[in-house]
Simulated scan of single mutants.
Amino acid sequence: MSWKGLPRKAGERVRVGRRVIRAPSVPSMTDPDRPAGGDESAGEADPQPPIDRSAVQYLDRVRAIFRPMRSDTLAPGLERFIGREDIFRHVGQSDTAHGAQPMMQCPSYWPAGTSWVPIRDLEILEILEDQDVRAG
């Protein structure tokens, strides 16, 4: 790394005006003394498989993206939440025309009257640690 023509190493102290700061500790790609093993491209990493919806247990929280199966039956005001990442909580089962299915509690800032969504309408990114408050 060089500033104003002066070569600087990562982690070295540098004077900027009246202050002394450290140069960034992350080496530049152009540094000649680059650590080996950084030649792997990011595209070669295996993508993680999608999370199985059946792995979500009662009262688990999930980080998920709302992607409704049918957009023609959406409650008013929900279209702005499509494709947005939120935190949902599995609150139980509900009998629907498609049979019993797990339902997820919507965040509190969603429109009034929309408190639950079917788990099939969510793309689950991560199951978050949560405690059952009744347990103790």
Rank of each mutant, 00 (worst) to 15 (best):
W3I: 15
R8L: 14
K9I: 06
A10G: 04
G11W: 05
G11P: 05
E12W: 05
E12M: 10
V14E: 06
V16N: 01
I21G: 00
R22G: 07
R22C: 06
A23P: 01
A23V: 12
P24C: 08
S25Q: 09
V26H: 02
D33M: 10
D33V: 09
R34T: 11
R34H: 12
G38R: 11
D39R: 13
S41Q: 09
G43L: 14
G43H: 11
G43R: 12
D46S: 08
D46A: 15
D46N: 06
P49N: 08
P49A: 13
I51C: 03
D52E: 14
D52G: 02
R53N: 07
A55D: 14
Y58C: 01
D60M: 04
R61K: 15
R61A: 09
V62R: 03
R63G: 03
R63M: 10
R63F: 03
F66M: 00
T73R: 13
T73V: 14
L74M: 15
L78P: 01
I82A: 08
G83D: 13
R84A: 08
D86Q: 11
I87S: 01
I87M: 02
F88P: 04
R89N: 03
V91K: 05
G92F: 00
Q93Y: 02
D95L: 15
D95E: 12
A97L: 12
A100T: 04
Q101P: 00
Q101V: 06
P102W: 01
M103S: 04
M104I: 03
Q105C: 06
S108C: 05
S108L: 12
Y109T: 01
W110Y: 07
W110A: 04
P111T: 07
A112T: 07
S115R: 09
W116Y: 11
W116K: 07
I119K: 06
R120S: 13
R120G: 02
D121A: 15
D121E: 11
I124E: 08
E126L: 02
L128W: 05
E129Q: 12
E129L: 05
Q131F: 04
